[in-house]
């Protein structure tokens, strides 16, 4: 099994022989790898490869059946779960919302800590993700899938995570919005040194946004390293992937 990526970088998250099974089904099979600190790592691979499960493991929503995960060198099993989840933020593809206004959703991470979110900060978050501040009082049930994805990203940023896990967050967005989000994530990454992990089915996106890439298939990490590996993959299965032959 390969230990991924450039080990000269500091490590934000390290997976050490991680396996995860559910109902006797092996979803993640003995994966080892690292997310370099302050870098953008893209996750590519077909549906059902286990990419989202890896993210859920990193955010602590589930625990590995075998192996250990480290966050900045500390075993995540020893980190208090709420602290872990505020440090490792996650925005999921389905952009689940709570009933009510955009503001209520944006303020939720603060509400959970018995704090409030300043209106100005909420408006700033909205403009950061390319939405007009007037959306603040709109009901989330009136918004499109793309708008919900943007709000989901903004909501995750409220906790100011050190690691940001993004699960196909631009899949419902048009080209302009996708570009806005890519710039925002790059800005967050560069300005605040936030480590980013980004699942995408868009290889072009993976190539131009990622510093590093993990290629996953059937619960295995079949190749990882600098994103350039996607240009000249050594693994035959990755070569097939690049030719669009996954499905």
């Amino acid at each position: 099994m390969q230990l991924a990526n450039d080990l000269t970088d500091k490590t934000a998250i390290e997976l050490n022989h991680i396996s995860y099974s559910d109902d006797n089904l092996d979803i993640i099979k003995d994966i080892s790898g690292v997310l370099p600190e302050g870098k953008i790592t893209t996750f590519v691979g077909p549906s059902g490869a286990g990419k989202t499960t890896i993210f859920r493991l990193m955010n602590g929503l589930i625990s590995p059946t075998k192996g250990e995960l480290f966050l900045f060198g500390e075993n995540i099993q020893t980190i208090e779960p709420t602290t872990l989840r505020r440090t490792v933020g996650i925005a999921l593809q389905d952009a689940t919302m709570l009933r009510g206004s955009v503001y209520k959703n944006l303020a939720m991470p603060k509400t959970l800590q018995n704090q409030g979110l300043e209106k100005e900060e909420a408006e700033h978050l909205l403009t950061q993700v390319g939405m007009d501040a007037s959306f603040l009082n709109r009901d989330v049930s009136d918004l499109s899938g793309g708008q919900l994805q943007k709000i989901s990203i903004a909501r995750t940023l409220v906790n100011r995570p050190k690691v940001l896990l993004l699960d196909e967050i631009t899949s419902s967005l048009d080209r302009v919005s996708t570009s806005d989000i890519e710039h925002l994530i790059q800005h967050i990454n560069q300005e605040f040194a936030v480590t980013i992990a980004w699942i995408t089915h868009n290889l072009e996106q993976a190539l131009h946004i990622g510093d590093y890439t993990w290629v996953m298939m059937n619960g295995e990490l079949i190749e990882s390293g600098s994103t350039d590996l996607l240009k000249n993959p050594s693994n035959p299965r990755v070569q097939k992937f690049m030719k669009g032959g996954w499905q």
């Binding site: 929503l61 689940t96 991470p109 800590q113 906790n159």
Partner: peptide, 16 residues
């Protein structure tokens, strides 16, 4: 279930 997991993922406690 999704809303419950969302709140957990944002750093909420089970009670919240």
């Amino acid at each position: 279930k999704k809303e419950t997991e969302l709140l957990l993922s944002l750093g909420g406690t089970p009670k919240q």
